[in-house]
Amino acid sequence: MAPAVELRGVAKEFAARGRHVVAVESIDLAVAHNEFAAILGPSGCGKSTLLNMVAGFERPTRGQVLVEGEPVQAPHPGRAVVFQEAALFPWYTVLDNIAFGPRTRGTPAAQYRPRIDTLLDVMGLRGFERHYPAELSGGMKQRVGLARVLIMEPAVLLMDEPFGSLDAQTRSVMQELLLTVWERRQQTVLFITHDIEEALLLADTVSVMTARPGRIKTRIAVDLPRPRSLEVTTSPRFNDLKRRLLALVREDTFNPGADHAPRAR
């Protein structure tokens, strides 16, 4: 069986302010079915570019991006994305934001209403159905952002630093929420982050990226038992893994020249 997500020799180059920029280079990555794969890297290493190519927002300059063995051509609800900024439609209520996908695809209301009901409960959004995004906190917005893609039952869930702009407290709550949701219904996740602890807490594997041009340097398996909760972050095994990842990331941060690369988002 083909991996759920596979990148073969993928490179992405573009021109920024007249300069030729290599965002990512010779990326090889395979994510198995139902694997929670984290991509860990410093800002500007092209990890968002990588996710955008899997989502179908951007095309690779070289190489192939395959999902279920098929080359990615365009965005598709089977590869749903949770963005760093929730990117909710500000003119729709919470309910209408969650229903956006099914409605746009012409799914009958009788089919998606029960799923919305379940999601409202699971995501703790009950009572906020008629609120507009402007009335929600950052954490609540991200719950809606997650709910509106989960309702599409995507084969692959793509998450681009989804909790990166939340405060520490809210971030922990959201991480535990995601753990609960994922451990209940396992599915393939590609999770972009620059937070080592977040990667270890959530993922089955962590792929470490180098600074620009972004390459995948190492991939380590996170053999922490599931179901996990925030307590796992205090275990000795967690700290061993954290030390290893810290060393890997640090090598790169001190690499002279890495900081001078222009950052593109």
Binding site: F57, P75, A80, V81, A87, F89, T104, M152
Partner: peptide
Amino acid sequence: NLLLLRAARMLGAGPAA
């Protein structure tokens, strides 16, 4: 906002939607 366009597309919206 480009992000909203991407959000709509990944949720299955066609050009008209």
